[in-house]
Simulated assay, not measured.
Amino acid sequence: MKRLILLIITIWQQQLKIYASAAIIGAAIGIFILAPSYDYINSREQNADPLSSMEYAIYQVQEILTGKITQNNLVLFYAEIGAMLGLLSLGIYKTLHKRLVRLDSLQSELGKDLPSIVRQGEGTLLEFKSSLRWDYQEQRINRALEGVVLKTLAGFFNSHLGGTLLIGVADDGDIIGLEKDYQTLKKPGQDGFEQSLMTAISANLGADLCHFVHVLFHVVDGKDVCRIIVSPANRPVFLNQGNAPKFYVRTGGGTRDLNIQEALDFVQGRFRHGK
């Protein structure tokens, strides 16, 4: 629990620095641009200042820097307005940027056909799983397999680029299908499979992550394959295993959990700018 709290504090500190920087930049814009602009427009309306707009702006900046500016210029007011605009602009930019990146990545991924994806083989951005809960070795339902799938998804969520998980494909690329998994569901078929998958994600990783997941089904030689396209999450994702939160990342063609120092370093780099 202490480790988790330490990670959360680190994330908050990084986020605070970003928003503080946006507020300071906005305040500077308010002081050095908005306030002089207001004074210039006011003086021109009164025909009280023959200076050009550029000359007036330079003059006002000099007055501010030398401390000669008066309260009548409403500097503090414009600093506050600028700070609020800076924070608002940051929020809008982060939201739009994330959505555009996710849409571009998703569009690129959707353009690929399943056979070409399988031929790539497993790697940092791609992994195969034979099933969600059916154990082919023991020929029975094995709920622990869901944890293996969730571990892979957590690694993709925490990565910079996300990734794709294919369920119904063996490690060697052989298409197995989902028929055995379907038989374990209360509602056999694609809809029941997707519902079970999203429920597992929501319960074990976080309901807010569901919109970072896109589930598609392909039919190859009469066999269903589930294709899960995972976009990078906007927060660190932990998976509780044995009442202990684990932080997973993709390394090469696998997924591994990080120790506390590795997790701290990774979080600072990955989520420092809300990436």
Rank of each mutant, 00 (worst) to 15 (best):
A263T: 02
L114W: 06
Y40N: 04
K98S: 12
P245C: 09
V219P: 00
A79W: 02
Q137M: 08
I8Y: 14
S89L: 15
L16Q: 13
I11L: 15
S159R: 02
R256Y: 06
R256H: 09
R235N: 08
K151Q: 14
Q107V: 10
D39K: 05
W134V: 03
N42G: 05
T251V: 14
I31Y: 02
G189Y: 09
Y59H: 14
A263M: 06
G274L: 06
V230S: 01
D191Q: 13
F32V: 10
G86I: 02
P36E: 02
R102E: 09
G177N: 03
T10Y: 05
I64Y: 05
H214I: 08
D104H: 10
V220E: 12
L126M: 07
L258G: 03
L96Y: 13
K129G: 04
C210L: 15
F212V: 04
L76F: 13
D265C: 11
V169H: 01
V237C: 08
G252M: 04
E109L: 10
I92F: 14
S131K: 03
Q60I: 01
R44H: 09
G147E: 07
M54T: 11
G91D: 08
R3I: 03
L90K: 08
P36C: 05
F156D: 02
V75A: 04
S37E: 07
L100Q: 13
K187A: 11
N259Q: 11
M198N: 07
I11N: 09
Y38H: 11
N142S: 08
I141E: 12
G252I: 04
R44A: 06
S37G: 12
A154T: 09
A20Y: 10
N47C: 01
V75F: 03
Q195N: 10
Q137F: 11
G168L: 01
G168A: 07
G168E: 01
G189L: 06
Y248S: 06
S196A: 14
V149C: 10
G253Y: 04
V101H: 10
P236R: 03
L114F: 08
H214E: 08
I167F: 00
A244M: 10
Q190A: 10
